[in-house]
């Protein structure tokens, strides 16, 4: 029970874009990795903002390390967000900062490390992700894989217990993101770190993720482990895997 770091209990919420979630419940243990997938407008886009309490009006409860995030005050919510790394679709690299400065930013703001220690640590991250050649570049000069790797470095700079990864592998050349994949794999296999993925391509995570949750119209329509994902006869899952328009989901 102590291993559970994140719990969603009957969470229902609606975003400004009219995407919604209904009665979502799951628990995340330390070291567990979950993949969320589903078609467009199934609620995938607001599950992470919901977890990070960017949507304030929600029903149910979200517990982080046993404490309801609803009860968090201004400072606690900041600290909570600091503890959860978020690699979102748009990456959001600061345009007037170099790769090095972007990665240093959370450390400069939160860390007690000295500026020299930060520099050394950031350089090691840059080196791990093969970004040495472009560390002085600004985001405008970077390729999509470099942007992804930079934002990944920034997301893990504070070594969060939970990492939220949104559509990371999509529109990326596998060859260019090898270093990212290796680093991510190391984190996924770590017994102390958890990663939540959102993707349209769940099959890419077979062998990496422990659990799979499929959403449709804001509801959980499938939940299971890797074996279930591969062998379940769930009609939603089957329709999704077969990329068929025939099935319970009306695809426009």
């Amino acid at each position: 029970m102590d291993d559970i770091i994140l719990t969603l209990k009957d969470v229902s919420l609606e975003s400004e874009d009219f995407e919604s979630l209904h009665n979502i419940s799951f628990s995340l243990r330390k070291g567990d990795n979950i993949v969320f997938f589903g078609p467009e407008n199934s609620g995938l886009d607001i599950i992470f903002p919901g977890i990070l309490r960017f949507v304030d009006n929600f029903e149910g409860d979200i517990l982080y390390k046993g404490e309801s995030i609803r009860e968090f005050d201004y400072i606690e919510i900041m600290n909570y967000r600091k503890d959860v790394g978020y690699l979102h679709t748009d990456h959001g690299l600061i345009a007037n900062m170099s790769v090095e400065q972007n990665i240093s930013l959370p450390l400069q703001y939160h860390s007690k490390m000295s500026s020299r220690e930060i520099k050394e640590f950031v350089n090691s991250l840059i080196s791990d992700l093969n970004l040495d050649y472009c560390k002085k570049f600004r985001p405008v000069d970077l390729t999509s894989s470099e942007i992804l790797r930079t934002s990944y470095c920034r997301a893990i700079a504070l070594d969060p217990d939970i990492l939220l990864v949104e559509h990371a592998f999509e529109r990326q050349s596998p060859l260019n993101i090898m270093s990212f994949y290796n680093s991510l794999k190391k984190r996924i296999l770590s017994p102390h770190k958890s990663v939540l993925f959102i993707t349209f391509e769940p099959e890419k995570f077979v062998g990496l993720a422990d659990n799979y949750i499929m959403l449709f119209n804001g509801r959980v329509v499938f939940m299971g482990n890797s074996y279930d994902f591969l062998h379940s006869e769930n009609e939603y899952l089957v329709q999704y895997k077969n990329m068929s328009v025939q099935g319970p989901m009306a695809i426009l």
Partner: peptide, 22 residues
């Protein structure tokens, strides 16, 4: 305004950085 549209502000918030202050 550009930072907001590029979701730079969002990424600052996700890092636990107080955007108003920062």
């Amino acid at each position: 305004a550009t930072q907001k549209q590029n979701r730079e502000l969002l990424s600052l918030e996700t890092m636990g950085i107080d955007t108003k202050l920062y």
